[in-house]
Design a binder for these strands. Structure first.
Lengths: 329, 329
DNA sequence: TTGTATGCGTTATCAG
DNA sequence: CTGATAACGCATACAA
C-alpha cells in the first residue's frame, strides 16, 4: 500500500506538506501543490481514511437507524427509499453511512447502545420513526452523546434536529379534498399507532376537519397494519360512506377488503407509495418524498456535526392520486 | 475517551495484556483476565475499532453492491431483502457492512473503482446481479484486489465465490408444474435481459421443458420490466394459451395487461416477491429466500477473508403460489 | 504468563 | 510557506 510518506518522497516534500494539499489547506504554494498532485497521480495513492480518522478524531461515520417491518409487512418500500436517499447523499458528502435496524439494538439498554455506536466510531445518527415507546433510544438521543436527526419525531435540542412534513396539515388537506370530491359525511378513520408521533398529528388533522365540516367520524386504530385495516373495514365500512386511513398500506388493506365485501366506498391513504398503484383503484393520498427527506436528514446531520445546533425542519408534501400505469413506467 | 491504556493502568497490567484479553489470546491467566475485565466494565471501556483496524490492517469492512432500479421500478423489494439479510448477518459476525449502489460507481473506470473501495478500507464485496455488460465491475472482480461473493452471477476463482439458486432447474420445474396444471401447449415466454446470467439460465430451463414436452413457445425479451411485459402481453397473448415470465414483476405486468384486455390466460412468475399478492390472481412462481441468500453471502465472504478459496454455492428454491392474505398476515 | 517497544498512516502543532 | 515531530489507540514481535 502506497502511503502519504511515499508521496512525500516522490514529490520531494515533507509528509505534512502532502497532508496539507490533501486536505487543501490554504498555505500551500501552487508549485508544491502541483508536485504533490503529480506524485499522487503517479503512484496511484489513495488516502487511508482509517488512519485519517484515528489521527483527526473525526470519522465522518453516521448510522441510519431504521424500523423494518413495524409499520408494515414485507413489501414496505419506505425504508428502502430512506436508504437510497441517505446513501446517495452521504456519498456525495463524503460521509460514511451504515444501516442499523431497530431489531439489532432492541434488547440493549442505553449504555450498551452508546457503546455499540461508539465502538463503531459513529458520530451521528439518523433515526427514522422513533416512537414514544422506544424509551431506550429516546434516552440515547437525550444523552447528547451523538448528533441526531430524527425523521418523523419531535425532539429538537442543541444536538438534535427533527425533520418531517406537516402531518396535521397534510391529513387535513387530503381528507378535505377527498371528502369534498366524494361528498361524504360519515367516515371511518383508521389511525396509525397509539402513541405514534405522526399518527397523533394526522389524527389531529382529521379531527380539525371533522370539527370544521361537522363530520361524523368513527376513529379506530389500525397500527399501520394492512391486515388490521382490513379487519376494521370489514367490521365498520358498511355503515360508513368513506374510509380515510393514516397510511397507504392500511388504505390498500381497506380497499381490498371492500372488494372482497363486494361493496364500494371511497378510500383515502397517506404516504404515496407505489404499491398504491396495485390496489385496483386510484386513491387519494399524500405524497412524501422519502428519498428527499433522507437526503435532507444527511445534510442536516452533517451541519450538526460541524457544530451547528438543532432545528426543526418541515418539508413539503403533495396531494396526489396514484395509478398503476404511472407506477410502472 | 477511555482507552486501552486507561484500562491497563486501572487493572495494573500492561497495555499489551489488555489487548490480549480483548482479542482473547490463549496465554492469559484467569486472574489477570478477571482484573482486566473488571477494569473494562468499571471504566465503561469500548475498544476503538478504527485504531484496531489501523494497527492490525484488518478492517472487517465489506460492501454490499446493489443494483437498485434496474430489474424493476420503485417497488422492488428484492434489494431490500438482500440488505436486511446481509446487515443482520454482518452484525452477527461483527463485520462492518456498507451499502453501495451501482449508480454510485457506474461512471468509474477500474482504477477509480479500486481506489474508491480501498479508500473506504473495504476488504470484500458482495455484488448482486452483476451482468455481462458491467465490464468495469467484472474487471474489478478479476483483479483479485478484493474478496468477492457474486450473487446471481458466475465467476468462481481463488478469491471469488458465486452464490445462487439453480435457475435452470427452477424455471423448468415451475413451468412444468404450471403448464401441467393448466394443460397448455402454446406459450409466450417473457425472458429477462439479453446477456443476463440468470436470464439465460432460466431461458435454458424453459427451452429444455419445451423440447421435452414438444411445446410451442414464443420467446420475447422483457428486460425484467413490468411495462415491457405488459406491452408484450398485449401484443402476443391473444394467440397463446399461457404466459410464463422470468420474473414476478413481469408476471404482474402481464397479468394486469390481461385484465385490461379482458381475457384470461394463466401466468407464471419467478422470484416469489410479496407484490405477487397484489396482482389479483394467485400465480405460480419460484420462491427465492433473498435474505437467506444474502446471509449466506456474508458468511461466505467472511470465509474468503479468512483465507478460504472461492467456491460455487447453490441454494434451494421452492415452488409456491402467493396469495394476498398470506402476504399481509 | 506478562511487559516493552515499535509501527500502522494520518493530522496537527510548532519551529523555522 | 514548509518541515520535523508528537500524538491517535491499538496490535504484535520480542524480551523478560
Amino acid at each position: 500500500m502506497v502511503s502519504i510518506r511515499d508521496v512525500a518522497k516522490e514529490a520531494g516534500v515533507a509528509i505534512s506538506t502532502v497532508s496539507k494539499v490533501l486536505n487543501n489547506y490554504p498555505n500551500v504554494s501552487e508549485e508544491t501543490k502541483q508536485k504533490v498532485n503529480a506524485a499522487i497521480a503517479g503512484l496511484g495513492f489513495v488516502p487511508n481514511t482509517i488512519a485519517s480518522a484515528l489521527s483527526s478524531k473525526k470519522t465522518g461515520r453516521v448510522a441510519l437507524v431504521l424500523d423494518v417491518n413495524r409499520h408494515a409487512q414485507t413489501v414496505d418500500e419506505i425504508p428502502m427509499q430512506y436508504i437510497i436517499g441517505a446513501i446517495n447523499k452521504a456519498k456525495e458528502k463524503g460521509m460514511d453511512i451504515t444501516t442499523v435496524f431497530f431489531t439489532m439494538i432492541a434488547e440493549m439498554n442505553v449504555e450498551e447502545m452508546i457503546r455499540y455506536f461508539q465502538s463503531q466510531s459513529i458520530e451521528g445518527l439518523i433515526i427514522c420513526g422513533l416512537s414514544k415507546e422506544d424509551v431506550v433510544l429516546r434516552k440515547l438521543v437525550k444523552s447528547s452523546k451523538f448528533k441526531v436527526v430524527l425523521i418523523d419525531a419531535p425532539g429538537v435540542s442543541e444536538s438534535t434536529s427533527s425533520i418531517h412534513i406537516d402531518n396535521t396539515k397534510a391529513q387535513y388537506e387530503v381528507a378535505k379534498k377527498f371528502l369534498n370530491e366524494n361528498n361524504c359525511r360519515k367516515v371511518l378513520y383508521i389511525s396509525g399507532k397509539k402513541n405514534g408521533y405522526v399518527s397523533e398529528e394526522r389524527l389531529t388533522g382529521m379531527k380539525q376537519l371533522a370539527e370544521e365540516l361537522g363530520l361524523k367520524v368513527l376513529i379506530r386504530t389500525g397500527n399501520f397494519s394492512e391486515l388490521e385495516a382490513r379487519k376494521l373495514t370489514m367490521q365498520y365500512a358498511k355503515s360508513k360512506e368513506a374510509i380515510i386511513c393514516a397510511s397507504d398500506l392500511m388504505a390498500i388493506g381497506a380497499m381490498k377488503a371492500l372488494i372482497d365485501m363486494d361493496i364500494y366506498r371511497p378510500v383515502c391513504g397517506f404516504d404515496g407509495v407505489s404499491l398504491m398503484g396495485y390496489a385496483g383503484k386510484q386513491m387519494h393520498t399524500v405524497r412524501q418524498d422519502f428519498q428527499g427527506i433522507a437526503a435532507n436528514a444527511v445534510e442536516e446531520l452533517s451541519r450538526l456535526m460541524e457544530g451547528g445546533s438543532g432545528q426543526d425542519i418541515v418539508l413539503p408534501h403533495k396531494l396526489i392520486r396514484i395509478k398503476y400505469l404511472d407506477v410502472i413506467s
